[in-house]
Nucleic acid binder design. Sequence first.
DNA 1: ATCCCTTCCTGAACGC
DNA 2: TGCGTTCAGGAAGGGA
Length: 290
Amino acid sequence: MVGRRFTGVDVLWPGSVDRPQAEVLSQSIAGRRIASLDRRGKYLLLRLDDGSTLVVHLRMTGRLRTHPRDAAPHHHARVVLHLDDGQDLHFEDQRKFGRLYLVADEAGLADVLRNVGPEPLAPQQVAAPSSAAAAASHQVREGAEEAPGPLPSGVTRRDFRDLLRGRRAMLKPLLLDQRFLAGLGNIYVDEALYRARLHPLRRSDTLTPAEVDQLYDGIVDALSQGIANRGTTLADYRDSWGTAGRNQERLLVFRREGKPCPRCGTPIEKIRVGGRGTHLCPTCQPGSGG
DNA sequence: ATCCCTTCCTGAACGC
DNA sequence: TGCGTTCAGGAAGGGA
């Protein structure tokens, strides 16, 4: 994508564009070149050559895929962005929860990202455009894997302790809160809490210092493994090349209710916390601490 | 600060 | 076979 220029936009479902108005988006983006790609939390950032940024949030079922120019859009295509290299970038989104934002400057970007908290992981290397290395980098390795090691962290252990200071919410909704920490969704919260051996209903102000460190490690490990396995495909998720992830094969508790805990064999339980399906091992993640 | 509810959506799964 | 209902979930916004 880097180096390509947008030549125009077709908005098939205006509800997918948060800002500006669809017609304004088309006018503003035409002729702009993609300078770089970035990410904040769950938001994808396409930095354009005039200082503006195209922001994409995929939410549940959104995806970005390239297709040959003027290919018939998929049933779920919501926005088609034409590129100058003979390809079209399609934003497809079955459930229409995903959103596109075009902001003119850093102030506009900051407004879109106003509820995004600190990054649990440090920025990852983005493959260079149109190189053999980029093509090679997306080849799926044989078999899913544990993370070779935790990825570089964004927040440090000390940062994490500071983040928790003054907080007393239940762990599950706290970790889902993007203002507290960016990037964790329902799957990875359950996986992180299991790894940390902490009950989702535990209140954050009841954790011992050792448990705070366990939680931090659980978060970093769960995310690192997800990235190493190129994402969790429970139904729809595909990467930009249309390839499914493999992390669903390595989930420890999520959507494994009734199956044995990988650590102790106790059947995994499913409960509801804050309206969210929540999976845990009642033996390894005991009590809710009151 | 925290919790809870509703809204936005489609399609799969389920009950009868 | 074919209805109608329920569920899933990320984020925002309102109310308690």
